[in-house]
Amino acid sequence: MNPEPEQPNHDEARRTFLKQSSLLTALAFTPGPVLQAAAAEIDEKVAAVFEKIPVRLDINGHKHKLSIEPRTTLLDLLREQLGLTGTKKGCDYGQCGACTVHIDGKRVNSCLTFAVMQEGKEITTIEGLAKGDDLHPMQEAFIKHDGFQCGYCTPGQIMSAVACVREGHAGSEDEIREFMSGNICRCGAYSNIVAAIQEVKGGGQKV
């Protein structure tokens, strides 16, 4: 995937739109009604292009200049536009943790934030955790302790687990369980996940 996919030029789209529009004045001053115009079936196809806005994001060390709709969540941007499907959609409502990524080093649910809100932020997904062929110690530990079955919640578990250790919330089994409870594993590999986190925490490697 091209890290900087070509996107329609925002300003150009806007100019075209304004030229074509029969509602020039209203649109120029109160963009809100653009949307109502769309609902009223006037020039909606152009209106949609107009609504894209530019965003710069650093994802796994790659700088992206994007033009996206404000309603696009970070999760959908990653999965549907950037080909970064390692971040999973399990519920889309912040109720499962499968979409966990790090933004400026903090774990968050990427399904509950609009990508435009992350302007200028550094985002790390599961694809950005390993250094080349060298897996992150947490990834190694998950393999060793079999901290997964189907693998679908795994990227979210691992991103969350890394943060859990970094935050200092891996002090005991019970603390790990509490602070990992935002990541559901329906296969039920919880005991093995806790074992993997304990090993990484105990190993004292920098995570």
């Binding site: 912040g94 943790g97 774990r107 968050v108 649910n109 935050e167 935002g182």
Partner: peptide
């Protein structure tokens, strides 16, 4: 309340 991730947001 919520989860560690949500509390970060």
């Amino acid at each position: 309340g919520a989860s560690a991730q949500l509390r970060n947001m």
